[in-house]
Nucleic acid binder design. Structure first.
Lengths: 205, 205
DNA sequence: GGGTGCATGTAATGGGTTACATGATTCT
DNA sequence: AGAATCATGTAACCCATTACATGCACCC
């Protein structure tokens, strides 16, 4: 059995472990499953499935269709399942996840007035929206997949999303307050002060 | 002035905005500045500095040294500063940050007993350690850089790290509790339980 | 003598997205 | 008529890490 170091093929094995699928199906499934913390594009999926097929991790069955191209449905082999289990044992190593928002905040002193505030506000909105989405997804999952033995694990990842998003929301609010304080300090010291953006847009919700 | 789309050159401009530096210096500075949410390797830094020099974003001065190779010290030009300011205005777009821990948790149903728990415990430890580090860093920053006008922004990113890490800690604890509950449920169901490693196979919706 | 730090850089390799190419079907 | 969906795949490109290559100084 060959080594499968990369996370991508293992992620695919994981998805195929739910049920047999085509490459197209995999791509469609992602946003409704691991989409909040993982992504794969067609450019990764199709070649990876082919390689894994050669390596004996998956077996392929071709379903012919009228008009449309054939569906190549892949399912896990025993080797594939073993490989997945093995990979799941390997400790995850820490990688620095890049966060462009924080990068810009770090250099905020160089930015024009209001730029950082706008970014933080956008992040706040985004994370509030995500929070709503998570609770909706949870309800749906609990209903539709009530009997799936994997449900608890799916809920754990949803819960992670909730914790992360709500922490980000809290940070955004604190940061906006801090930005207010900074602006105020500048005003006090201030030379010629006119109408620097002091308004925080309050909108729909 | 050329377009600089990628975040890497702009991150370098940002670091050079603190004070002029060599490529080597940049690399050394990263872990003590943006290291918690950004990284650049020599393989990126040196070519990028060269390109930016050609593009007129930075100017290079060579300091000769005894024995050691020359230091190439780069500083921002006006164009570079403008480019940085411009980039700081551009809204950050959402990218799905990959999280291998969550990926493994999602497929936890396929894992051997204890594997997921070990990963979550490791994450808990890691984040607790990071929390300690953040408070230490904050103290140090407040002392050493007390007069730097950029300090507030640096503290904001530190604060983000704190929020993120402590959210992760909370999630880890909740998740460990949930894993306990799952294990207990399995024990209850498994009337004739002997070898835990037994069979959870045979599942198909 | 050997490891570490200073200091530069390039090349190989891997990972990943986007754009391209094809083509029928179904919906608006 | 035109767009979206189904369905496959490849090629070009971008981005990033790692390994390699060099070489002196300093410390143990």
């Amino acid at each position: 059995m060959k080594k499968m170091g990369g996370a991508t093929p293992n992620a695919l094995l994981g998805l195929l472990s739910i049920h047999p699928m085509s490459g197209y199906d995999v791509r469609q499934l992602i946003p409704r499953s691991i989409g909040n913390f993982w992504n794969e594009s067609y450019g990764q999926i199709y070649p990876a499935l082919k390689q894994m097929s050669v390596a004996g991790m998956v077996s392929k069955k071709t379903e012919r269709q009228k008009g449309r191209p054939d569906r190549h449905v892949y399912s896990l082999t025993e080797d594939g399942r073993a490989q997945l289990r093995e990979w799941l044992e390997v400790p995850v190593e820490h990688e620095v996840r890049r966060n462009e928002l924080l990068l810009k905040v770090f250099f905020g002193g160089q930015a024009g007035p209001g730029a950082i505030r706008r970014h933080v506000e956008a992040s706040l909105e985004k994370n509030l929206a995500e929070l709503k989405l998570y609770t909706a997804m949870e309800k749906q999952l609990r209903k539709e997949e009530a009997h799936d033995p994997q449900l608890p694990y799916w809920l754990m990842t949803l819960n992670a999303g909730r914790h992360l998003s709500s922490a980000t929301v809290r940070w955004c609010r604190e940061t906006l307050a801090e930005l207010d304080r900074l602006d105020a300090a500048v005003l006090v010291k201030g030379t010629a002060v006119k109408k620097v953006a002091g308004k925080t847009k309050r909108r729909k919700s």
